[in-house]
Design a protein around this nucleic acid. Sequence first.
DNA 1: CTGAACATTCAAAGATATCTGAAACTAAGT
DNA 2: ACTTAGTTTCAGATATCTTTGAATGTTCAG
Lengths: 161, 161
Amino acid sequence: MHDAEDDVDHELREQAEKLALTLSQGGMQKTTARVMTALLFSRRETMTAGELGESLRISSGAVSGAVNQLIPTGMIERVPAPGSRRDHYRFRKHAWATLMGNQNTLLASMWDAAAGGVKIAGRESLVGQRLDEMQDFYGFMQREMAALIDRWREQYDAGQA
Amino acid sequence: MHDAEDDVDHELREQAEKLALTLSQGGMQKTTARVMTALLFSRRETMTAGELGESLRISSGAVSGAVNQLIPTGMIERVPAPGSRRDHYRFRKHAWATLMGNQNTLLASMWDAAAGGVKIAGRESLVGQRLDEMQDFYGFMQREMAALIDRWREQYDAGQA
DNA sequence: CTGAACATTCAAAGATATCTGAAACTAAGT
DNA sequence: ACTTAGTTTCAGATATCTTTGAATGTTCAG
């Protein structure tokens, strides 16, 4: 006999792996991406480290490494689990907004680098102009991105209520 | 004797390498990042492949590989050079805006992945909700980011005039 | 306090990604 | 057409990143 629920699980797993591949090409570590998408596409609310390892066929060490990369970024969280001995993980609400918000650090570094260059070369020179444009762009982005994310949150929360 | 111009060059090179390091930690290839920042922080308008290789102490093959990664992204461009035998490169105007605009492809993949999952699991389920939020977020971002970049271009071009 | 059940760490192995250098190729000048 | 400056390609060498698996650490239940 054929179980429809299993099919759903299987298809979700496929989607999950596909996304993980995309993310890893975009710079995220492969195992980290796989763990993240496994939680994202799981029908369950939380998964234990053991379940993740078994489902993805990776060692406990790899799971540990991945979750410890994911947690500080705010993508997933450790959930106190009643009954179970330890460590259940779950995909966080608004994780995507958090992730994008973290990019602000990078935007700030870019701004700093540009500002540093302008200080050395002066705003008059050719290179100064080039860096000035860069500084202007990253300053703008830093301000506006933060506002944009806030706007999404409001809009989304309003839609939920 | 001490040449002030040389000092400026040297300090700019330091800043360039610092930024290249940051970018490479953020996922960009190291040599690609170094080539890009070398052009960005150069006092000259364009640099040849040979100059890049000498300045960064990398082989001609490495330079070739790096520029051919950078050009399709729109960060740098090949400039027809009168007099010189071939290939001068220069950092493009509005390169940063272009770069950020390219991110839209990624945003679209994220949206697709979410949509695919919702289709499989339905919007009612727990996982459906999770993916629905993701879809909403990336849909929003895709729309708004494009608008934001346009807004910067206008604002910047206005300020220049 | 002890033992069971996990989780974490880390050295070594394995897998990837990247660079070099030389040969092959291209195009500009004569 | 030939020469030469300069670029691209690619196999092999190198460097870097990841994973495994076993040892070590931690926490909870009894």
